[in-house]
Amino acid sequence: MSKHHVTTTINGEETEFLCETQETLLDVLRNTLNLTGSKEGCASGDCGACSVIADGTLVCSCLMLGVEAEGKTITTVEGIADGETLHPVQRQFLEHAALQCGFCTPGFIVATKALLDANPDPTEEEARYWLAGNLCRCTGYDKIIRAVMDAAAEMRGEARAA
């Protein structure tokens, strides 16, 4: 079985990899590129733990083939912080204790960044519907929503919202 050669940009770095036809982008990220921050919770696009941003669009990397990454710009959870400086979304998740086991957290971080890139001032309801594709079984979403609203406020340069 011959493999495909793919050239793409991941977290700002030009990246090349070989993958089998049926391999998903998530498989490639985790097993070939050792970017294990993106998680597999379902492999069917229902849980959002593998969320990445591809050319500005939030996608489940389990629903995208590795070969489809050709020429695209991909941001994974590993690319959200600026070096050692956490993104406001990451910091607010920590301050609000918006994680328990932490398995869904990478997906939520990526999905929240995508939300706030698209809509810097979401209502609580908009945030809840945007994040409805990310499952969390630990928190009941309460602290996640508070973290998202406060991250939005912080990024708008306001004080605390929630």
Partner: peptide
């Protein structure tokens, strides 16, 4: 306080079973 394992979990560094 911020939990001691928190940064690993918001940056994708934490190593879970399949990682």
């Amino acid at each position: 306080p911020v939990r001691p394992d928190g940064v690993d979990k918001v940056t994708g560094r934490a190593t879970f079973g399949a990682d």
